[in-house]
Design a protein around this nucleic acid. Sequence first.
DNA 1: TAAAAACCCTCAAGTGGCTATAAGGTCAAG
DNA 2: CTTGACCTTATAGCCACTTGAGGGTTTTTA
Lengths: 143, 143
Amino acid sequence: MKIGELATAAGCTNQTIRFYEREGLLPEPARDTSNYRYYQQHHLDRLRFIRNCRALVMSHEEIRSLLELMDRPLEECQPVEDLLENHIGHVEARIRELLQLRSQLHELQQRCGHDRHVENCGIVQGLAEMVTELPSRGSTHLG
Amino acid sequence: MKIGELATAAGCTNQTIRFYEREGLLPEPARDTSNYRYYQQHHLDRLRFIRNCRALVMSHEEIRSLLELMDRPLEECQPVEDLLENHIGHVEARIRELLQLRSQLHELQQRCGHDRHVENCGIVQGLAEMVTELPSRGSTHLG
DNA sequence: TAAAAACCCTCAAGTGGCTATAAGGTCAAG
DNA sequence: CTTGACCTTATAGCCACTTGAGGGTTTTTA
């Protein structure tokens, strides 16, 4: 099948497929005489796998690791479990960060005072006075 | 004060300060004869404000809007409230996405089966079979 | 006083996961 | 034989920085 058909079947765009190819996530397909890419079923399987991983917000690096593990199907699956566990850790860390963030934002919202003038607005004052640390990247690759 | 002192006082790096200057978030300071930047208290106030906004994961665009509103202190503060409300909406949308994601990941984790071989691993099978949509960007500028 | 360390400067490129644009080649239908 | 739908490559943009190269200046130390 041609790239457009593959894209439709997997629910992504042609550019995304070419991007995955450059990234080494998807193997290079055969080309016809017009230099068009021609794909087979196993490309679609692999692409769907990748898209499912992306839907779960795994990074390309995580996906690459998974694909490598799958290329040795007789190995133990512990590393797969570990990878997933680790990824869940990323997601949960990010959730905790955002919940903390939300409560700070709600506190700030309370401070407004509805004074009608920006110079007296409790929100602006709060933003000027807060002493907050920026969350350091490291516990999560999620934004 | 010089850029390094400002950076220490605000808890960020020299490069970040120069970046904010290029972005138009922080006004250009005076220079000495060696072309070094020299900052005053109002620069520090403004930089701390920006860093606090960033700690609350506001985008540069949101911060720019806030700074513009603050430059007209006698205007009504309703737009400030609106901006914050809107930003809280972004954060809450992202939290909902990640909670949904977490439950999907936990389901996947259950499926492992601990068969010890990758080829029979329920996680890998789940990732191959899932039919998930990727969350569309639009409700949030958060990653 | 001179060397070394610590600071400052600009400019350019890299990060991640795409998306968008430009400028062109190929193919089937009318 | 032209129109439109496909395909190709290459390049730039997004966001908020971070890293690195390749310099110049100032402060500290021997």
